[in-house]
Structures are given as structure tokens and as C-alpha cells.
């Protein structure tokens, strides 16, 4: 085992650690997925260099090939999932889906059940928040309560929408990835 290969292996290991930072901190799902792609490529490099360094190339190159094959399946599957999601959103917005040459719809099955559970929990959260707001306004003074009631009457629709959005954001933060409802 030569010193150069050991240094190279340590370098790639450090690079994997740096790439995992982007997996942890990436603001969107796609940043994380691209970081995962980089980390898996670095993993293939580690396996190849390790096969040379340990002088058992046939064994470790086979493992590297298998690792590369399985790492290729993840972006294709998730790309398919997100493209299907896009198709549904385009149809809902009434925008022409001219730039997508083929028709494709949302996968359903277990994903649909998960999406229904997500929506039920969302509704529960909204109801609980509304109850909490009502209690708060009852515990305040009479003047304040009247003011609150007026405000509520003025921006009733707007506030309900804001509540829903806030609850949805919280739920999404807890529950990644947000799932689909039925097709």
C-alpha cells in the first residue's frame, strides 16, 4: 500500500464529509439530491482506490460497479416522482403543458393514502390553532375582545388562509417529503 494512495483515499473521505454538509444544509430537496449524487460518485472513487491500495482489485471493483448501478436508480426514481407532481400542478393551474411531450399522471397507491393522512393532520392542526386563538381572545379584556372580533370579521377569509398556510408550513417542516393526494 503506497503512501500516495493512502493520502488520496483520505482526501476523498474528507470530500465525502464536506459533501454531506450540503445534504444536511441544502435549502431545497434538489440541493440535497445533487449532493447525494456527488457523495455516491465519491464513494465509487473510494472503492476503486481502495481496491488498488489493498491489491484486491477484482473484488472491490465489482462492489464499486454495483454501487454505481444502485446509485443511478435514485435520481431517476425521484425525478419521475417530481415530474409527475409537476404535471398535476400544471393541470390545476390551467397552464398549457405543451412542453411535456407525453402524458403522465400522479402515481397512486400507498402514496395516495399517505397524502390523505397528511391532509387530515393538516385540517386537525388548523382546527387546533383556531381554538387556541379563540381562547386567547376570550381571556383578554372586553374592549380588546370587541376589537379582536371586529378585526376577525374584517379579515376573516384572509386570516383563515394565513392560518392554513402557517400550519401547512409547520407540517411540511415536520414531514418531508409532502406526499401526493390521489390522482
Amino acid at each position: 500500500m503506497s503512501t500516495f494512495l493512502v493520502i488520496a483515499l483520505l482526501t476523498v473521505a474528507i470530500l465525502i464529509a464536506i459533501g454531506l454538509y450540503r445534504v444536511w444544509a441544502g435549502p431545497t430537496v434538489f440541493d440535497r439530491l445533487i449532493a447525494v449524487a456527488l457523495v455516491s460518485v465519491n464513494g465509487v472513487v473510494v472503492l476503486v482506490l481502495l481496491g488498488v491500495a489493498l491489491e484486491r482489485p477484482v473484488l472491490l471493483f465489482d462492489i464499486a460497479l454495483g454501487f454505481a448501478l444502485l446509485a443511478f436508480l435514485l435520481p431517476i426514481t425521484l425525478g419521475r416522482y417530481f415530474e409527475a407532481r409537476m404535471a398535476r400542478e400544471v393541470v390545476e393551474d390551467g397552464v398549457s403543458s405543451r412542453d411535456t411531450p407525453t402524458t403522465h399522471t400522479v402515481p397512486h397507491g400507498l402514496l395516495a393514502d399517505r397524502g390523505r393522512a397528511f391532509e387530515q393532520r393538516l385540517a386537525q392542526r388548523v382546527r387546533r390553532q383556531a381554538a387556541a386563538t379563540r381562547e386567547q381572545s376570550l381571556s383578554r379584556g372586553v374592549e380588546e375582545r370587541r376589537q379582536v372580533a371586529e378585526d376577525d370579521a374584517v379579515r376573516a377569509g384572509d386570516e383563515r388562509r394565513a392560518d392554513e398556510r402557517r400550519a401547512e408550513d409547520e407540517l411540511r417542516a415536520e414531514d418531508v417529503p409532502p406526499a401526493e393526494d390521489e390522482a
Binding site: T28, L33, A37, V41, A71, L74, G79, F82
Partner: peptide, 16 residues
Amino acid sequence: ANPTAVHALVRAATRL
């Protein structure tokens, strides 16, 4: 495979 995988991800991200 590596550029294809990144292409699939970025295409989906662009459409979203």
C-alpha cells in the same frame, strides 16, 4: 450515468 442523473434531477427542479 452521472450526467444523466443530474440532468433528471435538475429538469424536475426546473419544471417545479
